[in-house]
Simulated scan of single mutants.
Amino acid sequence: MDDPDYGGRRVLLTGATGFLGTHLARRLLAAGAEVHAMRRHASKHTRLPAEGLHWHTADLTDYRSLERAVLASRPEIVFNLAAYGTTFDQRDRDLALAVNVGGSLNLWRALEATRCRLVHTGSCGEYGQIRGQVTEDVACQPTWFYPATKNASVVLLSTLGRQTGREVVTLRPFGPYGAADDPGRVLPHVIISLLNGDDVKVTAGEQLRDYSHVDDHVRAFLLAGVVPLRQTGAIYNIGSGEIVTLRKLIETVANAVASDAVKRVEFGAVDYRDGEIWEMCCDISAARRDLGYEPWVSLEDGIRRTVEWFATAGERAATAVTGS
Rank of each mutant, 00 (worst) to 15 (best):
S212G: 09
A42I: 08
V270R: 07
K263L: 11
G268I: 05
R27Y: 06
P295Q: 02
G128E: 05
I243S: 12
T17E: 05
Y236C: 03
G197S: 12
K248F: 13
K150S: 02
A287Q: 02
L97I: 08
D198E: 15
R162N: 10
A58V: 08
L66E: 01
L97H: 14
Q141F: 07
R185Q: 13
A148P: 02
F310L: 04
R172M: 03
T121L: 03
L12V: 08
E51K: 14
A320C: 14
L157E: 05
E76F: 07
W296I: 09
L246C: 04
I192G: 01
N151K: 15
L223T: 01
I130R: 10
Y63A: 15
G122W: 08
Q129C: 10
P183M: 10
R219H: 13
H189N: 08
L291V: 04
G165L: 07
A96F: 03
A31T: 06
E251W: 03
A31Q: 09
T203R: 07
I238P: 00
L29G: 04
A256K: 00
R74A: 13
H45W: 14
A311R: 15
D94M: 11
C116L: 12
P228L: 02
L194G: 01
V134C: 03
N237C: 08
I277C: 07
L24A: 08
A72W: 10
V253A: 12
A317L: 15
L299A: 09
T46Y: 14
S158E: 15
G15K: 00
A83E: 13
E112V: 13
L157G: 03
D260E: 15
H36E: 07
G52A: 03
A256W: 00
R316N: 14
H189V: 02
R68P: 02
L71I: 11
D290Q: 10
T46E: 08
P295A: 08
Q141Y: 09
E167L: 14
R26M: 13
G241I: 01
L97V: 10
S212N: 09
P173L: 10
S65V: 05
C116N: 13
A286T: 09
S65F: 11
Y236D: 01
L160G: 06
V154C: 10
T143R: 09
A148N: 07
R68N: 10
W309I: 00
E251T: 14
T57V: 15
T14V: 11
W108E: 01
C140N: 03
Q207T: 06
Q129K: 06
D271I: 02
L187A: 07
W144V: 01
G7A: 12
T17D: 04
S324L: 08
L118R: 01
H54T: 14
C281G: 05
R316E: 06
A139H: 09
A69K: 11
K150A: 04
V226Q: 09
D215T: 12
G132H: 04
T14G: 06
